[in-house]
């Protein structure tokens, strides 16, 4: 396949680069943890409030972490101008973008795997009975965050004040994904737990729409 092979090779490269240093993963984890602890200080939630507000806090923390950790995905390539090398390869330019989107999804999901149990303990929530559906929500929400985030990190890497610019561009655009992920998670923590098809639908359409838009228009961002 002309697309899958280069994309998987590039994905391997992204993962290798990250796991040599584990910089992104470590900083994301610590950042989300700090935010969660700070949130619990500022709100001091009761058990019922935790169920209602906990998911919102967790998703906000992930969103902020994402808007910071997705930033190096293109600036990292600028140091040695490696993006030019990638562009010169006779491959579909979307393979470059797709591998970065996938890699960033992996990093975020990995961080979430570690963070979810901690979150459950800190906010005193029982996540085990709804784990399967929770994973669906988190995979869809994370894909939304990393798709738009990766494309926008390609945008912000070409501008001045790039560290500030990425959250600015990313956060308003992710409003629908944030609402859907939070509401879906709140539904799962309700008694009895329920997963509204509406929110899964919003997340799936967000992912499909923006993956398609990235596929159609993302390559313009990679040209010189």
């Amino acid at each position: 396949m002309p697309f899958v092979r280069p994309a998987s090779i590039l994905l391997g490269k992204e993962l290798r680069t990250e796991f040599r240093t584990r910089e992104l993963l470590a900083t994301t984890l610590v950042f989300v943890l700090i935010t969660l602890v700070l949130f619990s200080f500022t709100f001091d939630p009761t058990a019922a409030e935790s169920r209602r507000f906990g998911p919102g806090l967790l998703w906000l923390a992930l969103l902020f972490a994402g808007s910071l950790m997705l930033h190096p995905s293109f600036t990292r390539e600028q140091v040695n101008d490696t993006l030019s090398a990638l562009r010169m390869a006779p491959i579909d330019p979307f393979a470059i973008l797709a591998s970065k989107i996938l890699a960033n999804s992996c990093f975020l999901l990995l961080a979430e795997i570690i963070l979810l149990p901690v979150f459950a303990v800190l906010y005193n929530l029982g996540l085990l009975p709804v784990l399967g559906r929770l994973i669906v929500v988190f995979v869809l929400g994370t894909l939304a965050l990393s798709t738009v985030g990766t494309v926008f990190s390609a945008i912000s890497s070409q501008a001045r004040m790039r560290e500030l610019l990425l959250p600015l561009l990313l956060l308003p655009l992710l409003t629908p994904a944030l609402i859907a992920s939070v509401e879906a998670t709140v539904g799962l923590l309700d008694d009895p737990p329920s997963l509204s098809p509406v929110w899964v639908g919003v997340l799936v359409s967000f992912d499909v729409i923006f993956l398609t838009v990235s596929w159609l228009f993302g390559e313009y961002l990679l040209e010189e």
């Binding site: 494309v151 926008f152 609402i179 729409i209 838009v213 313009y220």
Partner: peptide
Amino acid sequence: VVSAVFGVFAAFDVPLVYFSIWF
């Protein structure tokens, strides 16, 4: 180029924002 791509993303986001807030 860069702002045109952002413009396209923003435009596709609007209906999603509307429907998610509506629900």
